[in-house]
Amino acid sequence: MLQIRDVSFSYPDRDVLKSVSLSVHSGEILVLLGPNGAGKSTLAKTISGQVRPSSGTVRIAGKDPASDPDARRAAGFVPQSIAIFDKLTVRENLCVFGEVMGAEHGKLGELADRTLEQIGLGGRQNDRVTVLSGGMRRLVNIGAAMMHGPELLVLDEPTVGVDNRTRDHLREVMRSLRDQGLAVLLTTHDMEEAEALADRISIIVGGKIMAEGPPHEIVEAAFGSKQEVRVALDAGQLTAKQLDAHCRRLDIFGLKGSQDNTVWEGLLSDDDGQLSKLTLAVPASSKGVVEVRIRQPGLRTLLEWYVK
């Protein structure tokens, strides 16, 4: 449904997107995960045709959204901000955005009923959006992009600032849309959101796609059998000589220490026995060792690894 090939975009002083390629298929949620400033919103604007890439191609259902109205009609865009009309009711907002995005005027009532049911705001349809809670306004923000029945839905950080209940509801809505066959592209910097929703994840850092695939696969591809190790020391319980000895041992295993040498982190595999050797060399029960934590690396570790 969405094909992005080698898309680059630059401002005069910096490159925002560097040869980005990705695709989103019908019936899947692709999460574009990256830290703030990674280029997620710019990529979303490129897809909506608001930003013309310096090079590369964007195709929605095979058409260029920058020049072909049909391509833009096939997609629904949910911006990061709540971009709806304050003076209109929920239903009026849905109908206006539906019509602007190309829905047939005669079918607006029926489409609004369907969308209201999907976002769960049927009982508030005649309320002005100014009297709704922030979470409900987010739902209207999403509903406005669904009215015209798009085949692709692009959501830019759709759950920023919402409470847990609304966030869970929003996630249900997105899963439901995916199950109805929509291609969903979701940008976020929230690891939990990505893990909860993603069929596939693209990690973007510094305008470049670093990894793409199902969440567990890209983690496994990056780390293999390596485990995430964290050792915390209490300098107050140790003499300078003892602390120095711990540090030398941890350094040998390739762990990286904090500035005061009290926290050491790294990735170790047991395939070569390194993990077992570490637990023997720095046992959790020894004096001055506060914590020895070993766990499977996740998306957070992966993202931090790419950012570093």
């Binding site: 833009r72 911006p79 990061q80 901000s81 709540i82 971009a83 709806i84 955005f97 602007v100 406005a144």
Partner: peptide, 14 residues
């Protein structure tokens, strides 16, 4: 400023 313009402009009519 509210983002509505960009949203509307992303429609087929620009």
């Amino acid at each position: 400023e509210s983002g509505v313009f960009a949203r509307l402009a992303s429609g087929p009519g620009g």
